[in-house]
Design a protein around this nucleic acid. Structure first.
Lengths: 475, 475
DNA sequence: GGGTATTTGTCCGTATGTATG
DNA sequence: TCATACATACGGACAAATACC
């Protein structure tokens, strides 16, 4: 056997044993060391390399643990057959790139995507405090699975919040914590059975439509007007369940009118097995008028499944949402999903529970209401200067606005033009289920959550410039 | 020398070395450790207790200084004759602490449920370190949604780990991070299309069967024997995809034999559209023989979907799992799930990525391997004393064992009897799809992950007592 | 071919640097 | 600064395997 050498860098190369391990591993995987061949003995190799035999021992031990070599006691170490490496070479993974791309909104100067939130006013300190306290006080117990419906502490805080602030009437037992609408909705779909037909808002939240389709459920689009979904059309659809966003319809921004609310609840009560799925995704933010209480609280019959999320009110990356089930559905839910564990990490649930318990969540909401109100007024103010060509409905809520633009261009062209100028916007048409607007003006959805209030005037000016829309007084 | 054990409390029990010192001192003074007998070597003891060499060294140094033991260089430490010196030493008075909450796992004294892990050896410090660094350095950017397939940093670390520790050949682009098998499998099911028929192991992992059923997919049970799933029967099933646990079959513990691996991969390659779903849930833990490389790495044709989780290797409550998709399925995956966001909080993903990058994960795995090996040997050792009535296969892997018990009782009766005595066990029959064992001895699955090694002998004794099974020598 | 010297893996005690709080 | 814990590295003792006479 000729002499095996691996280069050793005693300074910056990391642990010596690691370098030895790595050198040998490479020689084995690239075939320089034949299967079955004997490695130098620990002592010999240690002498050759000028290190102690324990160092070599550590390296050999590592290789042994990973199955690259085998040890025959008092004989030596031998290269193992690490498999048919001929056609399954380990992939070389590039070193961790340097700066992970500054992420300036994917290259957009202003990003009006709905779903983006304000990141400047997040109470990092309060959140960190909770996180540290949860992590520091974490007992071994927190490693094990928690309650399948979510941590009791968090469900309690959510129940308190819902009762006080949203007019939702529920106990912690009715609450199911999940990772988001896209995770909770399939559960709802299975809970309501395979034969249920759903009515959905058109235009509406596209992800939900997607979910119905992917779960092989029928979803009938029902038109939306200024008062929200046209409840009077529900009867014709043959639907058993209606998915609605009463507080602030997406994307039109309409608030479901009181009359239609009553209508909707009566529709649900008419037949056994009918349900309303109330998605209350951004109800926390209203900038004028009275807060719209949840539909769920107006329903004496337990026909409303209430579903909401912390994506808008805290951060999208947290991935915590929840739903409130009517009591009569609980037994069936438990039966169906007896084997399921909660999909949300317990640490995060505990952090959030603490955050709410401390009152940090309500303080945060109060602050954010002001922040978003400023953005809202800045946006409506800026847009108001173009009222000859731009119209929008001011529902004074949420984090998005829908514009109608008087122009010859199509929605797609407007989106494209804005994009070329570094401004991301979405066409309203992309949220339509039934594409039924070749006539009428093109419409654009502006999500203002992620745009700094100070930048909004400029953003609007650039937008109008690139769409060649002049101010009311000009031209 | 039989194993010396001292209880260690990592949280409130004060310095570890002090606890070790105190434990040994007591054993010496009360005579449990005979004069002249050899203490475990520092390394061995450190391994046994799951602490570092130096920690034991401190304890031994203290005992040495106080004359309880003597050191013979390069031989070991030996118990000195301390005579009646014992009671002259200061007595340690236990801190007043509030009743330390027995926490006996839902009222069970010993919980042999599979899926439970060891919580005593979790590296809280390393985890906390990462968590704090992520939280402290978190920029506002981390509040927004991340990559839908999971954080790039984490996918990179997983790819590195899989390539060099599991023989899985993949790049980060192939990896999808999810909240668990129950969240990832439905994606797989939709990815492979509505018409796919699945072959599943019988007996097998019940949750997966559940998922197939709830997603309206056909799943054909295929029997499992000592070499794993009977691949030769796959052809008859008409299945297009096979869900298997090759590294350590659940619940039988069988390792899929080399021959069947080849067979399985050829079966998959035979027809276009055939796939193998490899669930590698607890492959990290093998206590003897060579580590079984993943099937995925042996497959040149891209027919294996590899799926695994951190539930066993870190903690179930973290809710992070991942899958590796064959390259040719990536376009379809992106198309189908374009609208989906990752369901795992970004904070947790970043923490885990840092934990892996630091090497803390591999260290943890190495330590846990030792911990579980101890439990495994303790369990097999204890059970070995009842070999006339109890048989089991020692696959030297994973965190569970399957026993066959010679008795007139049914599996249910055995489970019930154990439960009455505060011991939770599961019947093997509960994992069968086709109930086909009225004949034959009842079988029990013991998950030893969550039972302290020190308690295993007693747990087994109690179990045998309540089942009225006598030791080999007795009766 | 049987005894012996050497080689070898394994296990051991020890020392130092570092991170953390 | 100090206590604690760990990773890394050093060199020696031991017994089994091997090579050699």
């Amino acid at each position: 056997m000729d002499m095996l050498i691996v280069p050793i860098d005693r300074e910056g190369g990391g642990p010596i044993y690691g370098q030895i391990y790595e050198g040998i591993r490479r020689k084995i995987t690239d075939g320089s060391l034949a299967v079955g061949s004997k490695l130098p003995s620990k002592r010999k190799f240690a002498d050759t390399l000028g290190v102690s035999n324990t160092t070599v021992e550590l390296a050999y031990g590592q290789l042994l643990a990973e199955g690259y070599i085998s040890s025959r006691p008092r004989s030596g170490f031998f290269v193992q057959d690490v498999g048919e490496l001929a056609y399954a070479l380990p992939v070389v993974i590039p070193a961790a790139g340097p700066a992970p791309a500054p992420r300036t909104g994917d290259g957009f100067r202003y990003d009006f995507s709905p779903g983006r939130i304000d990141t400047e006013s997040f109470p990092f300190d309060a959140w960190r405090k909770q996180a540290k306290s949860v992590i520091d006080e974490s007992s071994a117990d927190l490693l094990l699975l928690g309650h399948p419906h979510g941590e009791a502490e968090l469900r309690r805080e959510i129940a308190l919040y819902l009762n006080h602030s949203r007019g939702v009437s529920c106990t912690p037992e009715q609450i199911i914590i999940g990772s988001g609408t896209e995770q909770l909705m399939p559960l709802v779909i299975r809970l309501l059975g395979a034969d249920t037909i759903y009515a959905i808002e058109d235009p509406g939240y596209p992800l939900t439509h997607h979910i119905f389709r992917q779960n092989d459920r029928r979803a009938i689009p029902v038109p939306v007007d200024g008062e929200g979904i046209r409840v009077e059309l529900l009867g014709e659809t043959g639907a058993d369940a209606a998915y609605v966003t009463p507080a602030h319809q997406f994307p039109t921004g309409a608030v479901l009118s009181a009359h239609r609310r009553t209508q909707l609840l009566s529709w649900a009560a008419e037949k056994p097995g009918r349900y309303v799925i109330e998605d209350d995704y951004d109800s926390e933010f209203r900038y004028g008028g009275i807060p719209v209480p949840a539909l769920q609280g107006m329903d004496p019959n337990g026909r409303v499944l209430y579903i909401s999320t912390f994506s808008k009110s805290l951060m999208p990356s947290l991935r915590i949402a929840y739903m409130v089930l009517p009591r009569q559905l609980l037994p069936r839910y438990r039966e169906l999903f007896a084997h399921y564990a909660s999909t949300v990490p317990r640490f995060d649930q505990q952090i959030l529970a603490g955050f709410m318990r401390d009152g940090a969540f309500s303080r945060h909401l109060n602050r954010m209401r002001k922040v978003y109100r400023r953005k809202y007024t800045a946006l409506t103010g800026a847009l108001g200067q173009y009222s000859r060509r731009i119209s929008f409905e001011g529902s004074q809520a949420g984090m998005h606005l829908r514009l109608a633009v008087v122009t010859d261009r199509t929605e797609e062209e407007l989106v494209e033009l804005a994009g070329q100028d570094g401004i991301r916007v979405q066409s309203a048409g992309s949220y339509s289920v039934v594409r039924s607007r070749p006539e009428g003006n093109p419409e654009i959805v502006l999500g203002f959550g992620g745009v700094p209030a100070t930048g909004i005037p400029e953003a609007v000016r650039r937008l109008m410039d690139c769409w060649e829309i002049e101010k009311d007084g000009e031209a």
